[in-house]
Simulated scan of single mutants.
Amino acid sequence: MTRILHLSDIHFGAVDARLVEPVLALAHDLRPDATVVSGDLTQRARASQFAAARAFLGQLPGPVLCVPGNHDMPLHNLALRLAAPFARYRAAMGPELEPTVTLPGAVLQGVNTADPLVWKAGRLRPASAQRLAHSFAAAPPGTIRIAVMHHAPVPAADGTPADMAAPAAALVALAAAGADVVLSGHTHMPHGGFAETAAGVLFLQVGTAISTRRKTSANDLALVTLGHGEVTVESWLSTPGSAGFAPGPIARYARPDAAWKRLTPP
């Protein structure tokens, strides 16, 4: 079995400081094979916020794969956002915006969906879709192919439409690339499901792990376990005022044919 710890929207600059150490302790207790942070490492893409995010990621169990989110580009500095939207991200996190991590039985490919032209909404660039397809095609047969992106082309948990340009085309591109699972954030609401037009792709979103910018009653993260033809998602929740994280709902998914099915009731 392969275990992936999934965090998102950590938003340094708007962090609940009481959660930082509990998240790090839990991350090491869970002993994942890799950790994924699916964007929005900062609140306003400031150098000091990136430095804090880099220090935090450096304490997570590795390898650590992260991708930019829309908050990782300058919002008010339009000139910098258009000329060099990811300069501060690269200075802190390294030059690669779409990294790859290979694990036993799985390949994780980062996808940069942040769009400096519109800032908030995302897009799947043709070059990113092509890179995803090449990365997945190179993986051995039987490998679980996982795309990691900030935005997802599926509705949020509350039914809000996907905050992404041309979501239908993005679904087609992800399915054509051979994606089995997509890990994402952005909505600040945990959610799991599939799309009719991309039934072979399982979309898993988490909320915010340590930020004060919650849209649900708790901060959350997830442990995603791959094995025996199933994907198990274990949620970990921290409600306001609690000292740390406690186990939350567990969802199990299987794909006995071309389409994913949820094995546990929602």
Rank of each mutant, 00 (worst) to 15 (best):
Ala53Val: 04
Leu204Cys: 07
Ser48Gln: 12
Arg44Asn: 06
Glu98Thr: 14
Ala254Trp: 00
Ala170Val: 08
Pro266Lys: 12
Gly122Asp: 02
Asp29Trp: 14
Ser242Gln: 15
Ala246Lys: 02
Ala222Glu: 10
Ile250Met: 05
Gly122Arg: 04
Leu237Pro: 03
Ala47Arg: 14
Ala168Ser: 13
Val118Gln: 11
Leu57Ala: 03
Glu21Ile: 11
Phe203Arg: 02
Trp260Tyr: 10
Leu78Cys: 02
Leu80Ser: 06
Pro116Asp: 04
Ile146Gly: 00
Ala52Gln: 15
Asp16His: 13
Ala166Val: 07
Pro249Leu: 01
Ala92Tyr: 14
Ile144Ser: 11
Leu80Ile: 13
Ala246Asp: 12
Pro99His: 09
Ala176Cys: 01
Pro85Arg: 13
Thr160His: 13
Leu132Thr: 04
Leu5Trp: 09
Gly159Asn: 10
Gly58Gln: 09
Phe203Gln: 04
Leu226Asn: 07
His228Phe: 07
Gln49Val: 13
Ile146Asp: 00
Phe12Ile: 03
Gly185Met: 08
Gln205Ala: 13
Ala45Glu: 08
Tyr253Cys: 00
Thr102Pro: 06
Ala84Trp: 14
Gly200Val: 10
Val107Ala: 04
Ser8Pro: 13
His11Val: 05
Ala173Val: 01
Trp260Ile: 06
Thr216Asn: 00
Asp220Asn: 15
Leu204Gly: 06
Pro74Ala: 08
Glu98Asp: 08
Val107Met: 02
Gly122Ser: 03
Leu75Tyr: 15
Arg31Ser: 10
Ser184Glu: 07
Gly69Asp: 07
His134Gln: 11
Pro116Asn: 07
Leu124Asp: 00
Ala53Glu: 11
Gly248Cys: 06
Leu30Val: 09
Arg255His: 09
Ala243Gln: 12
Glu230Asn: 08
Met164Tyr: 04
Gly244Arg: 03
Ala209Gln: 06
Ala127Val: 01
Ala91Tyr: 15
Thr160Pro: 00
Ala173His: 02
Gly241Asn: 05
Trp236Ser: 01
Leu82Gln: 12
Arg262Lys: 10
Asn70Cys: 10
Leu97Asn: 02
Thr143Ala: 06
Val118Ile: 13
Pro167Ile: 03
Pro249His: 10
Phe12Ala: 01
Leu26Phe: 06
Gly39Trp: 13
His76Arg: 10
Ala27Gln: 11
Phe12Glu: 03
His188Trp: 12
Pro190Cys: 05
Leu174Pro: 09
Ser135Pro: 06
His151Pro: 01
Ala53Thr: 02
Ala87Lys: 02
Met93Trp: 12
Gln130Ala: 15
Ala127Ser: 12
Thr197Phe: 00
Gly244Phe: 09
Met164His: 06
Val201Asn: 08
Val111Met: 02
